[in-house]
Structures are given as C-alpha cells and as structure tokens.
Amino acid sequence: MKNDDAELLWLDEQHEVTASELLELSGLSAEELEWLVEAGALKPIRRVPAAVTQQSNAWCFSGQCLIAIRMVSRLKRDFDLAPDALSLTLVLLERIRMLEQQLQQKNSQA
C-alpha cells in the first residue's frame, strides 16, 4: 500500500528521535533542550557516535518524549514559561503519563 509519500514516524518508546529532530519538531531552542537534559527532566537514550554527526549535542531520545516536549514548548510559548517551569512541567507530564498508562492497564483487566 502506498503511503502517499509521507514520512511516517512512530512516536513511542520503541522508536528514537534525534536531538535535531526534536528541536525541529518541537520548536524548542538548543539551549532549552540542553537545560531539560541537564535538569534531569529529559533523559537521552544514548549519544550518537561523533562519527555519525558533528553536532555537540547528538543525543537520541525516545520517540515518546516528543509529545510531552511539544506540549511544554506550547506552554512556554503561550505562558512565557521560565526554564525552571519548563523542566518541572516536563517531569510532571511524564508522571501523569505513567499514571494514565497504569490506570488504563488496570481498567482493561477489570
């Protein structure tokens, strides 16, 4: 089946996005992304070997995190969030995601 030539990206834990994809897709700046990693709010899966890319922050992230990163990016844009608020929001969003996942699992077992 032809996919109408669109490039399809799975946004989940089984797939990776690179730091540059994350920046491009979320609208965050490189400084903001670095801060999120530095603050421990965002955990890279791994670092791409320097031979593959020349970028200093050649991290790879779970495709799943793009959803939350886009949300904090929108909140930053619409509420002028400071970097601290950005990282705290991301941590809380991840906690909500985990709880929702657990709740969904419990409900479907019922």
Binding site: D4, A6, E7, L8, L9, W10, L11, D12, L25, L66, I67
Partner: peptide
C-alpha cells in the same frame, strides 16, 4: 499510539 506524518 501517536504517529507523525512529516510534511502533511
């Protein structure tokens, strides 16, 4: 599941 269609 979230999917991204680039350029669409």
């Amino acid at each position: 599941q979230k999917l991204l269609l680039r350029g669409k």
